[in-house]
Amino acid sequence: MSAMAAKHLPSIPEARETALEFVNIGKEYQRHTKEKVKVVREVNLKLERGGFLCVLGPSGCGKTTLMNMVAGFEEPSEGEIRMNGKAIKGPGPERGVVFQSDTALFPWLTVEENIAYGLKMKRLPKAEMKERIHYWMKQVGLEQHGAKFPGELSGGMKQRVQIARVLAGDPEILLMDEPFAALDAQTRTYLQQELSALCRKAGKTVLFITHDIQEALLLADRVIVMARAPEPNIKADLPVDLPYPRERMTEPFANLYNRLLDEIDNPFKASVHVL
């Protein structure tokens, strides 16, 4: 329908542009036993520009592998991942990655120098670099801590540094692999709220991996559920049409929560029914 309409309205850009596209993605690993294990199977997916997609699933379902392929750390065994229509080959600064582990930071560099690391390779003018670093330190609430080393920061602050470092590089796509999983509940809640606001403000396309249903519902405008083999890899794909900032204690939130809980494999589900 939209294609037909577009013919009559020539100069209006398509509202829902595709930023990232997975075409028949499969990934196999060779295990020690020589049998091949297919972790990712036939993933077909399109991410809209500016969208916030959460990938939800139990451990071992291939969600991190999926992200590593987008980041360019691993190559798909089958299919192609396209960014703006071009196949992804290797890592690149247009795809910023926030890792779960704070070992991704450079402990011998200060907060400021960590954020500057990627900018140095972009050969920005000194003044602009400084301005960007300070802007992003302020955005994540670290303006007082620029001269500190990562070892002097709390876990939550270290993740803020990672987020600032990635956003300062102005990537088109933000890839986040359970960035808050190792934090305490309080810090996690703060960071979720801040990230949600930051991303909407910056208009970035986000691919966010998590195993936390609440987190997915607080952040995403679309959630996909991945399952372990032999089930189809993408088990559910649903939009989250709730207004931001999200409230946990509302009925629509609870309904979506229960629905997602049902979709995620629970190996103990059968026994619960027996009880």
Binding site: G72, F73, V97, F99, S101, L105, Y117, G169
Partner: peptide, 14 residues
């Protein structure tokens, strides 16, 4: 050496 650190550097263009 943490793989995440090496990956982070690679993805920032190093």
């Amino acid at each position: 050496v943490a793989p995440a650190r090496l990956q982070a550097a690679r993805s920032m263009g190093a």
